[in-house]
């Protein structure tokens, strides 16, 4: 330890007395955040999407059923956004690549589902609705609302995976035992 380091060490406590933070304002912010839990805020985006998506699905499925009720029923072919236009194909490919990267980075399959239950449940809801949408896509391939909702599915999934990444890294930090010293 050189004389400079020693001097700083000897006067370490003085370094924490220099500024005057807005103690009252910070406390107000803490109280507000404690009263509005983050998890509720985080889930609002998904629930809005689920509610809106369910309504659109109901309407589209209803129209499809009405217009095809006189035609002999046959099994709908499977279809993706990529089958509609090259631009949508490009967008869908980018989203799928990003999702695959995030899932790989997270090692999603090996994560403890109980520990991150909320995220896995939301991912499951998202997936179920997406499958329902794909079923009505062949009969409604040029329905703009349906296409937008399918694109939003990818965006929401990416956002959920990012939030999960954040939770996992936070958990790792809390578990790390780096400092065991007193102030």
């Amino acid at each position: 330890m050189d004389p400079f380091e020693k001097h700083i060490n000897d006067h370490r406590e003085e370094l924490d007395q220099v500024e005057h933070p807005e103690v009252g304002l910070i406390w107000q912010g803490i109280q507000q955040k404690m009263q509005a839990p983050q998890s509720r805020k985080r889930r609002i985006g998904l629930y809005w999407w689920v509610a809106a998506a369910a309504i659109i699905l109901l309407v589209i499925a209803g129209i499809s059923w009405w217009s095809s009720s006189s035609v002999e029923e046959e099994e709908a072919p499977t279809m993706q956004l990529a089958d509609i236009s090259p631009e949508l194909a490009r967008q869908e490919r980018q989203y799928q690549q990003l999702i695959a990267e995030k899932e790989k980075h997270l090692q999603l399959a090996s994560l403890d589902q109980n520990e991150f239950e909320l995220f896995f449940r939301e991912l499951e809801i998202l997936e179920e609705l997406h499958q329902e949408y794909l079923k009505v896509l062949p009969a409604n391939a040029y329905n703009e609302k349906l296409i937008n909702t399918l694109l939003q599915y990818y965006e929401l999934k990416i956002r959920l995976l990012e939030q999960l990444e954040n939770e996992v890294s936070k958990k790792h930090y809390y578990e790390s035992q780096h400092i065991q010293q007193s102030i």
């Binding site: 924490d16 500024e19 933070p21 304002l25 910070i26 912010g29 803490i30 955040k33 404690m34």
Partner: peptide, 30 residues
């Protein structure tokens, strides 16, 4: 709060950001 603020503001020198981080810290603490 004061010690935490000074530790944070030396890493993130923006006063506004440092105060936000201190706020987030105590929410996590509680």
């Amino acid at each position: 709060v004061k010690a935490m603020y000074h530790t944070v503001v030396r890493m993130v020198p923006s006063t506004v950001d440092a105060e936000d981080i201190v706020q987030e810290t105590f929410v996590k603490v509680f």
